[in-house]
């Protein structure tokens, strides 16, 4: 059924199911890309709604599967030994009452537990990983004359961390050395935003390259992609220029 195996090996003898997967996945891909034309069009609306609906369906099924296999099966197999899980299950069910107008207040109990646990679990650990270890990693040797390059880099890290931190001081008026420090921090932030932009760009480009690889290789995909892309592009141009009223009706 899944066309990936065939595509990877350059197999041209694809069954109808695999071809349908390739065709539909190409259609949804170019449907979403169609927004790049700058025209609100029915292909984008179709792709967007199909994707959202499918994603919700999938999430529900996977969560349901987990509840059945890791909770219900355990409870059913030995209820007396797994009584704490019964309480967990009841708390889970109470969560569903969130949508009931009369009993929605009961859902606040599991929400309170989840919030309390979530915040406490993350706080107790991030005190170390997000604060103490980060401060420790910033306390670096800056007077190592045997390795001046490393000493310089260490000095720069210390300077950047301190100056950028002072830039985020909002509780007091910045005067004198604090103002100078904040100014340096501001400039350092601009340069680092540039670097972070480039890193983010690399990531998004990586995603696009992967998507294009699926669309172009092997030849069957390439042909389907060209046909689908041209069909959508021509339809959008025709609708926009010759049937603008129809186009308006077709988009939500």
């Amino acid at each position: 059924m899944d066309g990936r195996e065939g595509r990877r090996r350059g197999d041209v003898n694809l069954d109808i199911g695999s071809l349908m997967v390739i065709l539909l996945s190409t259609a949804i891909t170019f449907g979403l890309f169609s927004i790049l034309t700058g025209v609100d069009n029915p292909f984008f609306a179709w792709a967007e709604n199909i994707y959202v609906g499918g994603a919700v369906g999938m999430t529900i099924v996977v969560s349901f599967t987990w509840i059945v296999s890791n909770l219900i099966q355990k409870i059913v197999s030995n209820p007396s030994a797994n009584w704490p899980l019964i309480i967990s299950f009841i708390l889970g069910l109470m969560m569903l009452l969130r949508v009931h107008p009369k009993y929605s207040y009961l859902a606040r109990i599991p929400i309170s537990i989840a919030t309390g646990v979530g915040v406490a679990v993350s706080t107790r650990a991030i005190i170390f990983s997000g604060l103490l270890y980060q401060i420790r990693a910033t306390i670096l040797p800056i007077f190592d004359w045997r390795d001046p390059a490393t000493a310089f880099t260490n000095l720069m890290i210390v300077v950047f961390v301190i100056t950028i931190l002072t830039f985020f001081v909002y509780t007091t008026e910045l005067k004198g050395p604090l103002k100078v420090s904040s100014g340096i921090g501001r400039l350092a932030l601009f340069a680092s935003f540039g670097a972070l932009f480039a890193q983010t760009y690399m990531g998004r480009l990586g995603l696009f390259l992967g998507r294009m690889e699926t669309l172009l290789i092997p030849e069957t995909n390439f042909k389907i992609s060209v046909i689908v892309a041209l069909f959508m592009l021509i339809t959008i141009i025709v609708l926009k220029n010759y049937y603008p009223e129809t186009l308006k009706k077709l988009v939500p």
């Binding site: 891909t29 979403l32 994707y51 499918g54 994603a55 995603l207």
Partner: peptide, 15 residues
Amino acid sequence: ADSFILPGDATIYAI
């Protein structure tokens, strides 16, 4: 999943 969700998810971020 293979026809709609996975390609849709990948494309939304690739855009």
